[in-house]
Design a protein around this nucleic acid. Structure first.
Length: 234
DNA sequence: CGGATTTGACCAGCGC
DNA sequence: GCGCTGGTCAAATCCG
């Protein structure tokens, strides 16, 4: 179980409810927009989950070897000074910035994939939301299962064989009504042992199974979220 | 029977 | 303009 105070100020634009216990996270690619333009609050039902992505990984003792900020697909604006980007993700240790550690599959899955990213950004922008770019994260995991149990309920809506890859790409959409978060899952063409997962968007609801702890403010009498926990993480 | 999955068709963007 | 490719739709099918 982990507690996370909403006041911690380190809410993430994308945090998992839980992680598959059998997956090893090897590469994670954060899009520039996701890094720099994260909403200060709101993910997962208002950001109450509070744990950063990096912290979540560490908390689960997952082997996040490296990741990089990927700005190829989206012309990431310079991070606003007010956005403490380093507070919610832990920079990879001494990684060559120009080293293309991102597998092709990751790039194809969204990281550094101009067309899809642009299309997705346009799609999101067209929804009339105040966000102009898509929050996207792609990472590679070593897993036998293609579906990582992140706690959310996904509905498969498409499957496509992609060019230069023997493995098909599966398309999933968050099955929660009103939530249009999508994810793409495919096996790394270079190493089928790895699964490349790309999440796109931010959940506008709480994670199923998440337990919120309420506390009452003595002064105002108002209730507030004092913390959350996920049964699986206990 | 309702929800999830499968899968072929369709559409839009991009490169030539 | 055309072909290729990725992404999505939707009807059919499967499954609990």
């Amino acid at each position: 179980m982990y507690m996370a105070a909403a006041a911690a100020g380190a809410s993430t634009p994308f945090s998992f409810c839980r992680h598959g216990s059998h997956a090893e996270y090897d590469d994670a690619v954060f899009s520039g927009s996701w890094m720099a333009r994260r909403p200060s609050a709101a993910p997962h039902g208002g950001g109450a989950s509070g744990s950063s992505f990096g912290a979540a990984f560490r908390q689960q003792h997952l082997d996040l070897l490296d990741y990089l900020s990927d700005d190829q697909g989206v012309p990431a604006p310079p991070p606003p000074a007010a956005v403490p980007s380093a507070s919610y993700v832990t920079p990879a240790p001494a990684m060559g910035p120009a080293e293309p550690v991102v597998p092709d599959a990751v790039a194809a899955a969204g990281g550094g994939y101009p067309r899809s990213v642009a299309a997705a950004a346009a799609a999101v922008a067209g929804e009339g939301r105040d966000r102009t770019m898509t929050d996207k994260i792609a990472f590679r995991t070593r897993s036998d299962d293609e579906i990582l149990d992140d706690g959310y309920k996904w509905r498969k809506y498409g499957k496509k064989s992609v060019k230069n890859s023997p493995n098909p790409r599966n398309y999933y959409r968050c099955s929660t009504e009103g939530c249009n978060v999508k994810k793409r899952v495919e096996r790394d063409k270079n190493d089928p042992r790895y699964v490349v997962t790309t999440y796109e968007g931010i959940h506008n609801h709480v994670c199923p199974g998440t337990v919120y702890y309420a506390a009452q403010d003595a002064a105002s009498g108002r209730f507030f979220v004092a913390g959350i926990s996920h049964p699986d993480l206990n």
